[in-house]
């Protein structure tokens, strides 16, 4: 899976916007949106919010978790705990990048938020690598991926799956009696 495909999935998340135009309810396959009234906040998917924002038709209200104090708290918790802590949104990385790139004027302290989210991301990736290593070295057969987001899994997926595949084959060497290990005569 490509990172941009993960981003595409993230664009289905809803975000609150304050439009500056009026429009009746619009009926789409994915659900009904609106009605839009100037000054009244309304929930729309991120892709629509960004499109309206680029045409300067709305102001984006940042999600509640996109706040310096809350993110600092989360970062400290993430650093303290050995396991993965719950994240505010399953697409926190993608949403931060999208919203900060296109609507940084609507988000207070955009730069600090960017740094904090990056810190959280780095801590989590380091943990992910640590747990992948212990997963391999203890010859575990399954792992619980609680609180991991799609983007995080996606960065390590290709490598981890290929390694597990190799390891499975090297492990099956140890049981030469199994029918898979027998080589067919030419």
């Amino acid at each position: 899976m490509d990172a941009s495909e993960v981003e595409f999935l993230a664009e289905k998340e809803t975000v609150k916007i304050i439009p500056n135009f009026s429009l009746d309810k619009i009926y789409l396959i994915g659900g009904d949106l609106g009605p839009f009234n100037p000054g009244l906040p309304v929930d729309v998917p991120v892709w629509l919010a960004l499109n309206l924002k680029q045409r300067q038709k709305c102001r984006i209200v940042p999600p509640a978790w996109m706040d310096v104090d809350k993110l600092e708290e989360m970062r400290d918790l993430e650093r303290k705990e050995d396991t993965f802590t719950p994240v505010p949104s399953p697409y926190y990385m993608e949403l931060t990048k999208l919203l900060l790139n296109y609507a940084s004027d609507n988000i207070p302290k955009a730069d600090e938020i960017r740094t904090l989210v990056k810190d959280i991301w780095d801590t989590r990736i380091a943990k992910l690598r640590l747990s992948a290593d212990s997963f391999i070295s203890q010859l575990e057969a399954h792992a619980k991926l609680d609180n991991l987001t799609l983007m995080e899994i996606n960065t390590i997926r290709a490598f981890l799956l290929d390694s597990l595949n190799c390891m499975y084959k090297l492990r099956s060497n140890q049981q030469p009696g199994s029918s898979k290990g027998q080589f067919t005569d030419f």
Binding site: R129, D133, I136, N173
Partner: peptide, 20 residues
């Protein structure tokens, strides 16, 4: 067979870190 597996596991961490 055991040594092959141990070698792979032992080298895994370094390989993962450098590739990532």
């Amino acid at each position: 067979a055991q040594t092959l597996l141990q070698t792979f596991m032992g080298r895994f961490r370094r390989n993962m870190d450098s590739s990532q």
